[in-house]
Computed example of a mutant assay.
Amino acid sequence: MSAYIVFQRESTHDQQALDRYAQRADGTFDGHDVQALVDYGTYEVLEGPPIEGVVVLRFPDAAAARGWYRGEQYQEVVQDRFQGATYRAVLVDGVDA
């Protein structure tokens, strides 16, 4: 069953740190079966507080998603994201077709 990591950027604190993250984040996908379905496209908040953007990544299953997120390569890069902004990140299982 596919699994998704949904990132919502809530507020930016350091644009330079986010720029460093953006330059390096895609390289962490090497060797992982991941597809970006949403990458800061146009959005409309229908409920809840305002956000600054959304990213949705699809993985074959939750174990693969955790493997990428918890992997050494991403954990080095994510420090710039932590410094640059406040995000909410959620891992959710998909629905079998």
Rank of each mutant, 00 (worst) to 15 (best):
R70H: 03
L91E: 05
P60S: 04
T86N: 13
D33Q: 07
Y21N: 09
E47S: 12
Y69K: 07
V56F: 05
A36G: 13
S11G: 04
M1H: 09
V92E: 00
V77E: 03
Q15L: 13
Q8L: 13
A17T: 05
Y43M: 14
R81Y: 00
Y87L: 02
P60H: 01
Y4T: 01
F59S: 03
L46S: 10
Q23P: 06
T28N: 03
Y40S: 14
Q23C: 05
S2A: 15
G84C: 08
S2R: 14
A85E: 00
T12K: 10
P49A: 15
D61N: 11
G71K: 01
A3G: 05
S11Q: 14
T86E: 13
D19V: 13
Q8R: 10
M1G: 15
V56S: 06
V45N: 07
G67H: 06
Q8D: 02
R81P: 02
L46Q: 11
Y40P: 12
D61Y: 02
Q83N: 13
A62S: 09
V95W: 08
L18Q: 07
D39M: 11
A89Q: 05
T12V: 15
T86V: 12
E44F: 04
V6I: 15
G94F: 01
T28F: 01
A97D: 09
E44I: 14
V45T: 14
V6Q: 08
Q23V: 03
Q79R: 09
L37T: 08
A64L: 04
E44R: 14
A62P: 01
A63S: 06
V55N: 11
D80T: 01
Q75D: 01
R81W: 03
E44W: 05
I51G: 08
G84L: 06
Y69Q: 05
Q73L: 12
R20P: 05
W68I: 13
Q16C: 00
R9K: 12
G27W: 00
A97E: 05
G31P: 02
F7I: 13
S2H: 13
A97P: 15
Q23L: 06
G94N: 06
A64H: 05
Y69I: 07
Q15A: 15
A65F: 02
I51Q: 03
V55A: 14
A62D: 01
D80R: 00
A17Q: 03
Y40N: 15
H32L: 09
V55E: 10
D96W: 02
